[in-house]
Design a protein around this nucleic acid. Sequence first.
DNA 1: TATTGTTATACTCTATAACTATA
DNA 2: TATAGTTATAGAGTATAACAATA
Lengths: 155, 155
Amino acid sequence: MDMIVRTKDEVALGGLEDAPGFLLRMAQLKVYEQFFDQVGDHRIKPGEFSVLWVISCNPGIRQSLLGQRLLIKRAHMTKLIRALEEQGLVSRRIPDEDRRAVELSLTTKGRVAVETASQWFFAYEQSLGANLSAGERERLIALLKKFIGMKASGL
Amino acid sequence: MDMIVRTKDEVALGGLEDAPGFLLRMAQLKVYEQFFDQVGDHRIKPGEFSVLWVISCNPGIRQSLLGQRLLIKRAHMTKLIRALEEQGLVSRRIPDEDRRAVELSLTTKGRVAVETASQWFFAYEQSLGANLSAGERERLIALLKKFIGMKASGL
DNA sequence: TATTGTTATACTCTATAACTATA
DNA sequence: TATAGTTATAGAGTATAACAATA
């Protein structure tokens, strides 16, 4: 019969180690830590990059739709976009069809910034999960996509 | 809560949908959202529960070790533990062997609270990933454990 | 000198609700 | 009435740095 022997540095997690919510939280903290170790002090943070990137992929996207896709609440989105606007990266336009809405685009400066940032961003993302095999990493990505309700097919 | 009728406005993510850091962030947001939908307004939040649970599994654990395992910074740990102490759930003890350290244990009230909370906590964790098959869910858990550098024993 | 924990400060992210202007 | 966005406020969570006590 196997005995579980713990040195005094071992910590029993009592089932927490199989709880998906807990594991996702830990994984995200590791990722965040690795981000600062690796890319350090860029002006654009991952959250801001994702906003800029999605705007660059969908010029004229409405603020509400962008927020829905990135799970950013409206009140927070307003502050985020204003900060990016003040940096001269994003421009807003009120469409005549619906004058409540705001359509977002990148400025020229914004496009340059995204172009630069995308290089370190995707290199950083590529470096995540380096301790997994290529197949495991792919499976993890596919399972996460399914977990959050994204189509697993090639979007 | 999200009763939005979607027109066919698709949003291109331009590769973001395969970025593990992005997916982990999205997954964690979904989990958090589901937590409030499902278990609502308990006094103990997931982060606090995990601290109490690990103390209950490791009576006398040192504050520094607990923080290392749960990736909670020292300054934040101090505030967290003090709040739990003020609720009468946790007690601290300065060991003679090292009078810089703090050893943590649950009070009787703390043990009762954890016993109660563990029921809804693990039910909630079990409900996560319900859109995956049992095998997929298990694989996701195993891959997350490997991703964060946990032993994937017996898989 | 290094480590453990505390204190103080600040900034980000998020939640909520009241508000406007449109539809 | 409902929707898109804004404003204001508050509370977590976390980062940093200075600090005390102890090793």
